[in-house]
Amino acid sequence: MQIESLSIEELAALRDKVTQTLADKVAARQKELLAESERVGALVQEAPLRNGFGLRGF
Rank of each mutant, 00 (worst) to 15 (best):
28 A>D: 08
52 G>C: 04
35 A>W: 06
34 L>R: 11
45 Q>V: 10
39 R>V: 08
23 A>R: 04
38 E>D: 12
14 L>E: 01
30 Q>V: 01
58 F>Q: 14
52 G>I: 03
7 S>G: 07
42 A>C: 09
49 L>W: 15
29 R>C: 09
28 A>M: 07
25 K>M: 10
11 L>Q: 05
7 S>V: 03
58 F>H: 15
57 G>R: 06
12 A>N: 07
20 Q>A: 15
31 K>S: 10
12 A>C: 01
2 Q>M: 15
27 A>T: 13
17 K>L: 04
9 E>Y: 04
51 N>W: 13
16 D>C: 02
19 T>I: 09
28 A>C: 05
27 A>W: 11
42 A>L: 12
36 E>L: 15
11 L>I: 00
15 R>G: 01
13 A>N: 02
22 L>C: 06
53 F>K: 13
58 F>D: 13
37 S>G: 13
47 A>P: 04
21 T>H: 06
44 V>P: 01
51 N>P: 03
12 A>T: 06
25 K>P: 00
32 E>G: 00
56 R>E: 10
18 V>R: 09
20 Q>N: 12
31 K>N: 07
51 N>Q: 13
10 E>D: 10
21 T>S: 08
9 E>D: 10
19 T>M: 11
8 I>G: 00
2 Q>H: 14
29 R>Y: 12
45 Q>S: 10
25 K>D: 04
29 R>T: 11
31 K>T: 06
10 E>P: 00
21 T>V: 03
47 A>Y: 14
23 A>W: 00
22 L>M: 08
2 Q>N: 15
29 R>D: 08
38 E>Y: 02
51 N>R: 14
23 A>V: 01
4 E>G: 08
5 S>G: 05
36 E>H: 14
9 E>H: 05
47 A>T: 10
24 D>K: 06
44 V>E: 11
39 R>P: 02
42 A>I: 10
58 F>M: 13
36 E>T: 12
31 K>I: 01
1 M>P: 09
57 G>S: 07
12 A>Q: 08
20 Q>Y: 11
15 R>M: 08
51 N>Y: 13
41 G>D: 03
42 A>K: 14
35 A>C: 05
33 L>V: 06
41 G>E: 02
40 V>N: 05
44 V>F: 11
41 G>R: 02
45 Q>G: 05
24 D>H: 08
56 R>I: 13
14 L>K: 04
55 L>E: 03
17 K>R: 11
17 K>W: 01
44 V>L: 15
46 E>L: 13
30 Q>P: 00
26 V>F: 01
57 G>K: 07
11 L>Y: 02
12 A>V: 05
53 F>D: 00
20 Q>W: 11
56 R>L: 15
3 I>T: 12
4 E>P: 04
12 A>H: 07
58 F>G: 14
25 K>T: 10
55 L>K: 04
46 E>S: 14
4 E>Q: 09
54 G>Q: 07
19 T>V: 10
21 T>A: 10
17 K>S: 02
33 L>A: 03
40 V>M: 13
7 S>W: 02
5 S>E: 12
38 E>W: 01
18 V>P: 00
1 M>Y: 12
25 K>S: 08
18 V>L: 15
46 E>C: 05
28 A>I: 02
15 R>F: 10
27 A>V: 07
9 E>I: 02
28 A>H: 08
35 A>V: 09
6 L>N: 04
36 E>V: 10
43 L>G: 00
29 R>A: 13
16 D>S: 07
